[in-house]
Design a protein around this nucleic acid. Structure first.
Length: 695
DNA sequence: ATATGAATTGTTTTT
DNA sequence: CAATTCATAT
């Protein structure tokens, strides 16, 4: 590739992907060393755009050609999408021989293993998986059951359910004791240590009683099984001859324990990662994993990939300097043979609207020059920051797709419907019962609790709810729910669209409830239609629910049905969701201090470093064109009626800025005539007030 | 005990 | 800005 103008064939994505051909073809010396590495631990330190995925794919292909059976290879990736993409590319190299390679996320793999071996480790076979929201709900039940004496007048400082869950999750994922987490991160809660521990104990008991497994359990149970003594652990360790892990910098301590246990006999572990792109510390990930890898696995071969195939040199100059401000890292200085290219732009916009206008105008310019929309992306720190842009794009009829925003599985109405399916699958699912009962007219907290207690007494048999006697005002609702559940249980489950049909039945009852409870009814109903479509792709309720918990379809477009009318779409994405992707042109917006880095992520040096790496990830997504923008005046709704003057992000310090071209965008066209001042005695408010007697 | 309406509040990132 | 929490009426 050169810096010359590109020719865009219909489907650029394929062209941008790896050149295929004979195995060794098109690989540089370092990549080849990694691919051909024999047995034993291998650490590939791969900078952004250095062909990390390609190397991993080729290595899988190489192992297969060496005669390793596909089902004895485990490929762990960060997202399911990444796994699929790699396996597809491997297939292009070696054909169908690659089918059968096990691939997926840590969580999905844990799930598979637990379904298969969990019963030998004392786990009930039909457990359900809780997503984060469910876990928080359950934590709330434990929290209120603990009867924390929250003196009314006093500032009740006991942590909220979300915080409790977060602390619990950190404890599992980072393996630090709870008291330590409290004293280091939540000193204000140290005094509640005893109660917090009690809530956690109760939470754990509830999970067991209700046959529920949360995300953290998936990893924890896998680790415990694999590390145990005896035949089960041996079986697990003998399952795979080779384990390969992508994005290793984003794994946590628990995950590294799992890997050590799974590879204890062969030590055939390959990990790929870039410490400079570690952006998941909030989830317990630690760059110690990648920095200490050679120590954990004696005899490790380290291969460093430094040649960048993605970006033009001026972009690399900027990103190299940006990341050089980080402290501890494997030093890599990325270089490229790609010539030409413009220096990245640093755009100071007068305000948010000017920023939006600049981005949209540039996108249209580039598009007119022949760049497809699908080769451009706009990146930002947090989902809500694209709101203004989305409005403008819609107005100008530019098709776009948003990643990592609102997930419709988290929408209340979708969770409501799923609650029905869940109690069918797992009648003991207290969280879902509770949610569902509260939906019914005439049933509130107290009644719901009573019903659940009664059902527990009746040992959760399928007719337990029918035998519960509701108070008179809830009669009708109880009756119709009993009927619905009977119908659902009686429905044939072997039909192809059984799950979808279940949802349709649920909606005969639920749609009316929805209309009552929520506004913006139409889009919500559309979501439910969408849910039915997704469900049609699954053979049965159980697999549908598990899949949903582990791989939520990220955008509605993700779902594959109907709405892919547009082929050439612009991508809007959070920096997190953009990881691992690349585009010809990238816009990083809201690069103002307090927004990127976010104000609330500035607590410690570690957090600031992580924010810097996040910006590094965002900027290194660009191949040919990069623009970083920030608005100067921002209307801050929190302080009423005042503008704040924003500073450019602290990461774009003097040295970094020197490598960029500075552009200032004012208000090029005056926006809609700002209220022509006409003297008038008309007072609209007063007129309206008089109408109602002038209160 | 529930339902409804008002106030408030706090707002990342994801498996 | 929406979702949660809080207070009040039924």
């Amino acid at each position: 590739m050169t810096g010359d103008a590109k020719v865009y064939p219909q489907r650029t994505r394929e062209v941008a992907a790896a050149p295929t051909g004979p195995l060794a073809d098109g690989l540089n010396e370092a990549q080849l060393r990694a691919v051909l590495h024999g047995d034993g631990p291998l650490l590939i330190v791969a900078g952004a755009g250095t062909g990390k995925t390609r190397t991993l794919v080729h290595r899988v292909a190489h192992l297969l050609e060496r005669g390793v059976r596909p089902e004895r290879i485990l490929l762990l990736t960060f997202t399911r999408r990444a796994a699929q993409e790699m396996l597809a590319r491997a297939e292009r190299l070696v054909g169908s021989a690659s089918r059968g390679v096990h691939g997926g996320t840590f969580h999905a793999t844990a799930h598979r293993l637990l379904r298969r071996f969990g019963t030998s480790a004392g786990l009930a076979a039909d457990f359900s998986i809780m997503d984060q929201g469910d876990a928080v709900d359950l934590m709330q039940l434990a929290r209120s059951a603990a009867g924390i004496a929250e003196a009314k007048g006093e500032k009740k400082r006991f942590p909220k359910k979300e915080t409790l869950h977060y602390i619990y999750s950190r404890h599992i994922n980072t393996e630090r004791p709870v008291p330590q987490i409290l004293s280091e991160e939540y000193p204000q809660f140290v005094e509640y240590e005893a109660q917090i521990m009690r809530v956690f104990a109760d939470y754990t008991v509830r999970k067991a009683q209700r046959n529920l497994v949360d995300y953290d359990d998936l990893l924890l149970f896998w680790a415990l099984m694999a590390e145990s003594e005896g035949p089960l652990a041996e079986r697990l360790a003998a399952m795979y001859d080779h384990v390969l892990v992508d994005e290793y910098q984003d794994t946590n301590h628990l995950q590294s324990r799992i890997l050590r246990a799974m590879c204890r006999t062969t030590a055939n572990l390959t990990v790929v990662g870039d410490d400079a792109q570690s952006i998941y510390a909030f989830r317990g990930a630690t760059i110690r994993n990648i920095l200490d890898f050679p120590h954990h696995f004696p005899g490790t071969t380290v291969v460093t990939l430094e040649e960048n195939y993605r970006s033009v040199q001026p972009i690399l100059d900027v990103t190299n300097r940006l990341i050089s401000r980080s402290e501890e890292r494997y030093t890599k200085d990325l270089f490229t043979k790609r010539e030409g290219g413009d220096r990245p732009w640093l755009v100071t916009a007068h305000d948010e609207q000017a920023q939006t206008r600049f981005v949209v105008d540039r996108i249209l310019d580039l598009h007119e020059e022949g760049m497809p929309l699908s080769e451009m992306a706009v990146l930002f720190r947090a989902g809500y920051m694209s709101a203004d842009l989305e409005i403008e794009l819609t107005a100008r009829k530019i098709p776009f797709e948003k990643w990592g925003g609102l997930k419709f599985l988290e929408a209340a109405h979708v969770k409501d419907v799923l609650a029905f399916l869940r109690i069918l699958e797992n009648p003991r699912d207290e969280v879902s019962w509770y949610r569902l009962l509260l939906l019914l007219p005439g049933i509130g907290e107290a009644t719901a609790r009573g019903a659940i207690t009664k059902m527990a007494e009746l040992a959760w048999t399928s007719d337990a709810f029918g035998r519960y006697l509701p108070p008179p005002r809830a009669r009708a609702a109880h009756e119709s729910l009993v009927q619905l559940l009977d119908q659902l249980r009686a429905a044939p489950s072997d039909r192809k669209d059984a799950v979808s049909a279940d949802i349709a039945r649920v909606r005969r009852l639920y749609d009316d409830i929805l209309r009552e409870r929520y506004d913006r009814v139409e889009p919500r109903l559309a979501d439910l239609d969408q849910l039915q479509n997704i469900a049609a792709g699954y053979p049965d309720r159980g697999s549908f629910l598990s899949a949903l918990a582990l791989e939520p379809p990220s955008a509605t477009q993700d779902i594959g049905f109907g709405s892919d009318s547009e082929d050439d779409v612009l991508v809007l994405s959070t920096a997190h969701s953009a990881k691992g992707r690349e585009w010809d042109a990238v816009f990083v917006i809201w690069a103002a201090d307090g927004w990127f880095p976010m104000a609330r992520a500035l607590g410690s040096d570690e957090e600031i470093d992580e924010e810097r790496r996040l910006m590094y990830v965002a900027m290194t997504r660009a191949r040919d064109y990069l623009a970083v923008t920030y608005p100067f005046n921002v209307y801050d709704s929190r302080r009423s009626a005042d503008y704040t003057i924003d500073q450019v992000s602290r990461f774009l310090d003097r040295g970094v800025r020197d490598l960029m071209q500075k552009v200032v965008v004012d208000q090029p066209q005056a926006p809609v005539d700002p209220a022509p001042h006409v003297a008038s005695t008309l007072d609209l408010r007063a007129i309206l007030n008089q109408r109602f007697g002038g209160l």
